[in-house]
Computed example of a mutant assay.
Amino acid sequence: MDGFYAAYLTGRAGSGLLLFAIRGPTFIGVDGGGVKYDGQIEVVDVGLKCTIVYMIPAGTPNLITGASPPATDQRIPLEFILPKDFWNGQVVGITTPLGPVNARFQKLRDW
């Protein structure tokens, strides 16, 4: 699972691209809007449990969920389950605190 990935995201108000890396249990990434992602991935019976915190800088425009831009930096915790073969092109729905998104993942290269 170690490697570099792209996530093509779509929400109520638009779409975006998240680039991230997984090495062991560590998840780290950034999207085109400047949002930073840090977290852990754990293999569980039903897939991969992702425990992520994403940081939205103050004034970030055009959040794809349609949420209003934050006036101050926001750290938002998020937990979700991915299928074990999440990078195979399937669309995965993820419910975030700011609204739902659909994600399609692609593995770009091994670590």
Rank of each mutant, 00 (worst) to 15 (best):
F4A: 13
F4G: 05
Y5A: 10
Y5L: 09
Y5D: 10
Y5E: 05
Y5G: 11
A6D: 06
A6M: 01
A6Q: 10
A7D: 03
A7E: 04
A7S: 12
Y8S: 03
Y8H: 07
Y8P: 09
Y8V: 02
Y8T: 00
Y8G: 03
Y8L: 08
L9A: 04
L9F: 08
L9T: 08
L9C: 02
G11V: 04
R12H: 08
A13P: 08
A13F: 05
G14W: 04
G14R: 05
G14T: 08
G14E: 00
S15W: 04
G16L: 01
G16F: 06
G16I: 00
L18A: 06
L18I: 02
L18N: 07
L18M: 11
L18K: 03
L18P: 06
L19Q: 07
F20C: 02
F20V: 02
F20R: 00
A21N: 14
R23Q: 15
R23A: 14
R23C: 09
R23M: 12
R23I: 11
G24W: 12
G24L: 13
G24M: 14
G24Y: 13
T26G: 09
T26I: 15
F27V: 13
F27H: 12
I28C: 11
I28Y: 07
I28L: 14
I28A: 15
G29W: 05
G29V: 02
V30K: 14
V30A: 10
V30F: 08
D31M: 06
G32M: 06
G32L: 09
G33H: 04
G34I: 01
G34A: 10
V35R: 01
V35I: 15
K36R: 14
K36F: 07
K36L: 13
K36C: 07
K36V: 11
K36W: 09
Y37A: 01
D38M: 10
D38H: 09
D38S: 13
D38Q: 12
G39V: 01
G39W: 03
Q40R: 13
Q40A: 11
Q40I: 10
Q40M: 12
I41N: 07
I41K: 01
I41G: 03
E42S: 12
E42I: 11
V43G: 01
V43F: 00
V43H: 04
